[in-house]
Simulated scan of single mutants.
Amino acid sequence: MAESDSALLETPLASLHRELGGRMVPFAGYAMPVQYPAGIMQEHLHCRAAASLFDVSHMGQAELVGEGAAKALEALTPADVQGLKPGRQRYGLLMTMAGGIFDDFMVANLGDRLFLVVNASRKEQDLALIGAALPAGVSLRPLPDRALIALQGPQAVASIATLAPGIADLSFMGIGAFEIAGVPAIVSRSGYTGEDGVEISVPAESAEKFARALLALPGVQPAGLGARDSLRLEAGLCLYGNDIDETTSPVEANLVWTIGKRRRTEWNFAGAERVRQELDTGARRLRVGIRPEGRQPARGHTEVHAGGQKVGEVTSGGFGPSVNGPVAMGYVAREHAADGTPLDLMVRGKPLAARVAPLPFTPHRYAR
């Protein structure tokens, strides 16, 4: 059932999106711009070439405060949170007791507190899950009064550094507090496009002024959800609810790298038993990249066949503007997961030839 416009929440930048010609659509309970007049293809390619501004204020932001906050969070995630140094951020997975992925999230050490960013579609559930796991003396503070803006692309950091030079000194996954255009901001050198760039948390009441200051920088253009999705797909990055969910494990999802080295000796996080077993014996299925032959894309839920049998399913698929062809990700049975393995994608009842392809489809260009 379609969500009515009246029932949708709005981010602090909603009026700016409309002013810029953004086409608003329902997403995770919010009215969000899917594209601007330039169109998804141009927005995507501009991000790969220059700098694009994305509104990601629908995401959930929160702080964990108190002695033992990092240890408490480790009960829910295989990430090494206690080993996270001040001024550093990490990508992690929240886990179910059965070993599925409850959500993916970012956690940063701001010195006196942990800063969390979780997915829009899961934020209420995530904060409830985390809150229930906290011991006395550790508190979770949701931050609903903050906006989140991503500036992504090879020129993003150079552009914003004209307003706050210290940002250029951050390395990939570095985070710090800055004043930018008169607005206090928490800036992390991270993003979900495969490009270099930053994500910036600012007070909601200053968000529009702040976004206008960034859009006034040379080379910066707005981009919507459409380009954000095609960029992250080319970069081989998972979208929660499509590529990962409570049925998928970190091993199946090829996210084993998120499990800290120390955590693999302790096995004291939710779902550890399934993760340990799959690391020992191999997962039944694996997330892979898929390149369809020809020009026709295969969308999510397309069946993947091999030898006339169903061996998996596409979870994300579309046209990759940077690779100038269709790209997809999905899960296939382990014996069909090697790069180059031929597959058939069942598009409108007809087999479309494809092959397993290495991820990412477009090289990551993070500031290592």
Results as ranks from 00 to 15, higher is better:
Ala2Thr: 14
Glu3Phe: 08
Ser4Thr: 15
Leu9Asp: 13
Glu10Asn: 12
Glu19Trp: 04
Leu20Ala: 13
Tyr30Trp: 15
Tyr30Gln: 10
Gly39Asn: 09
Ile40Gly: 04
Glu43Asn: 04
Arg48His: 09
Ala50His: 15
His58Gln: 14
Glu63Ala: 14
Leu64Ser: 12
Gly68Lys: 07
Ala69Leu: 07
Lys71Phe: 06
Arg88Thr: 08
Arg88Trp: 11
Arg88Asp: 12
Tyr91Ile: 15
Leu93Arg: 07
Phe105Leu: 14
Val107Trp: 07
Ala108Met: 13
Leu114Ser: 05
Phe115Lys: 02
Glu124Thr: 12
Gln125Asp: 11
Ala133Thr: 01
Ala136Gln: 10
Ala136Glu: 11
Gly137Pro: 01
Pro142Tyr: 00
Pro144Ala: 05
Ala147Asp: 12
Val157Asp: 08
Ser159Arg: 15
Ala168Lys: 05
Ser171His: 15
Ile180Trp: 08
Gly182Asp: 12
Val183His: 08
Pro184Phe: 08
Ser190Gly: 09
Gly191Glu: 04
Gly194Pro: 00
Val198Ala: 00
Ile200Glu: 03
Ile200Cys: 05
Val202Phe: 05
Ala204Gln: 09
Glu205Val: 01
Ala213His: 02
Leu215Asn: 06
Leu217Phe: 02
Val220Lys: 03
Gln221Ala: 13
Gln221Glu: 15
Pro222Ile: 06
Ala223Val: 02
Arg228His: 13
Ser230Thr: 14
Arg232Ala: 04
Leu233Asn: 02
Thr247Cys: 01
Glu252Arg: 01
Asn254Ile: 10
Asn254His: 12
Leu255Arg: 01
Leu255Trp: 06
Gly260Lys: 06
Glu266Lys: 06
Phe269Arg: 02
Gln277Met: 10
Glu278Val: 14
Glu278His: 10
Glu278Asn: 12
Leu286Glu: 08
Gly294Ile: 05
His305Pro: 01
Ala306Cys: 03
Gln309Gly: 01
Val311Trp: 06
Thr315Phe: 10
Gly318Asn: 00
Val323Lys: 00
Val323Met: 10
Tyr331Leu: 00
Val332Pro: 00
Leu343Val: 01
Leu345Tyr: 08
Arg355Cys: 07
Tyr366Thr: 00
Ala367Leu: 10
Arg368Cys: 01
